[in-house]
Nucleic acid binder design. Structure first.
Length: 272
DNA sequence: CCAAGCACCTGACGGC
DNA sequence: TGCCGTCAGGTGCTTG
């Protein structure tokens, strides 16, 4: 499930390997993965040079010479892999042939992901984009605390809310709450300022470490070269329900919050 | 302002 | 062996 670290690793890889290349042909074997009419999508991407690849929240942005951006959301199972020569596969949704004989392929088993082509001026007016919260790695812990302090919502839900903090998903939210010793159902307003500062300091550390480890691969995630990440080996709670806590040996438990499974240690995460 | 539930979609897995 | 239910989860939407 690509979250901030995974998308960041992908963006860095694609920037390294694709900037300066020109798209020579665009194929769309599954047009419903587009949020732009297919004819227009092809017309506006073919013959365009790729001038940058970047990330905002969980969005992967491939900027073209025209200042159009290919805006990918990978959702749960999306992949953007660059290489070649291409072998067409069952779940390919979009393929771009580049002028050096390589291909960028967007594939997605579950078809939740999408690609939307927008001029940068239009992108900046898009509600989803415009309303995104601060980037945790470009903000101080204090700035992030300001996003949640005093709110009467559960901290887990706030961490997952892209308008509060950008890029955090279920895995990194659980890992961060565990490291900070905060129960996922705690109301933000009931957490001291000092504890919130700790929380966001941990969040930045977890995200930074995950990027350094090339992201986390649960099942589908691959980086831009098709390789798995390694941070899943550092998970302390995610996917470990029933296992003993690494700190105190108490069996880890789960609870549903904001429609998602939260795994936590009932002994270590008590802050209310 | 906040929460819950559903929709989208497929594959993996457990139970029988 | 095979069928069926459940789960995984990001985001948008509706409803309370």
């Amino acid at each position: 499930m690509p979250e901030l670290p995974e998308v960041e690793v992908i963006a860095r890889g694609l920037r390294e390997s694709m900037v300066g290349r020109t798209i020579t042909r665009t194929e769309v074997p599954w047009p419903t993965s587009l949020r732009t009419p297919v004819d227009e999508f092809i017309k506006r991407t073919e013959s365009q040079e790729i001038i940058d690849v970047s990330r905002r929240a969980k969005l992967l942005l491939v900027t073209l010479r025209s200042n159009d951006a290919l805006c990918f959301h990978l959702k749960m199972t999306g992949r953007t892999v660059h290489g070649g020569p291409v072998v067409s596969e069952a779940h390919d949704r979009i393929r771009f042939a580049l002028d050096d004989g390589t291909f960028l392929v967007f594939s997605d088993v579950r078809r939740f992901g999408y690609c939307k082509l927008m001029h940068w001026s239009e992108l900046q007016e898009w509600d989803f984009y415009k309303n995104l919260g601060p980037e945790p790695l470009d903000s101080t812990p204090k700035q992030l605390v300001e996003q949640v302090e005093g709110r009467r919502a559960r901290i887990k839900g706030l961490l997952l809310n892209q308008q509060i903090v950008a890029g955090v998903g279920n895995i990194y939210a659980d890992e961060t709450l565990y490291r900070a010793g905060i129960h996922p159902a705690t109301l933000a307003a009931d957490i001291s300022n000092g504890k919130l500062l700790e929380l966001f300091t941990h969040l930045r550390e977890v995200l930074t470490q995950a990027i350094a480890e090339n992201g986390s691969s649960i099942s589908d995630y691959r980086d831009s070269g098709g390789n798995a990440g390694a941070f899943q080996n550092k998970f302390r709670v995610y996917g470990r329900s029933g296992e003993p806590c690494q700190g105190c040996k108490t069996p880890l438990k789960t609870v549903q919050i904001a429609g998602r499974t939260s795994t936590y240690c009932p002994a270590c995460q008590r802050v209310k």
